[in-house]
């Protein structure tokens, strides 16, 4: 059975003279034992191997994204230009329509809007005449003197007569309210 230090020791007894003569030669070595042990100890104190992935992750990511950008740039520069194509489409002209006679709508005005015949001329009575005058010319056309005061049977009071008539009423203070 082999061991780490003696990988193969079973066939040494079966060696020929040539093999024994060659095997007696000692390989020259310039290996520095202490240096190897020092570097091995130095490596054992180094940070764990997991850091390498993080160190290489971002450069790899940046490189891959740069490749993507480069590829898209190439695709963009080589994209075929779409030419504008003008297509004329024959559209049938619509036939001229026959002139249509305008439809005249005759609508009878409502009775309420028709002028009243009695407004065309003043009526026979004074009330009719006054109403006709107001409708026709407005309130401004009314005479300043009331119609009742113009009755021929009564004379209008002067200012002095009116004052004398009303003095008793003016002098009476009246009851408290």
């Amino acid at each position: 059975m082999t061991t780490p230090l003696e990988p193969d020791s079973t066939s040494h007894g079966d060696r020929t003279d040539l093999e024994q003569a060659l095997g007696s030669l000692r390989p020259a070595s310039r290996i520095q034992r202490d240096r190897i042990l020092f570097r091995a100890g130095q490596q054992s104190a180094a940070p764990p191997q997991t850091g390498r992935f993080a160190v290489r992750l971002w450069p790899a990511l940046a490189a891959s994204l740069a490749l993507v950008v480069l590829g898209q740039g190439v695709l963009l520069s080589r994209r075929p230009v779409k030419e504008i194509e003008v297509v004329y489409v024959q559209v049938p002209q619509p036939q001229a329509l026959a002139p249509v006679a305008p439809e005249v709508l005759v609508q009878q005005a409502p009775a309420a809007t028709r002028p009243q015949p009695w407004l065309d001329a003043p009526g026979p009575t004074a009330s009719n005449r006054l109403s006709w005058q107001i409708i026709r010319y407005g309130l401004d056309a009314l005479p300043s003197t009331p119609v009742a005061a113009l009755a021929p049977t009564e004379k209008p009071l002067t200012a002095g007569q009116s004052l004398e008539t009303n003095i008793p009423n003016l002098m009476n203070p009246g009851d408290p309210s």
């Binding site: 780490p4 230090l5 003696e6 000692r26 390989p27 020259a28 070595s29 310039r30 290996i31 034992r33 190897i36 042990l37 091995a40 100890g41």
Partner: peptide, 17 residues
Amino acid sequence: PDLLGRLIDRHAPALEL
């Protein structure tokens, strides 16, 4: 380290050759 030292002593010359 002892095992590493023994491996060096035993195999280093042959490995170099």
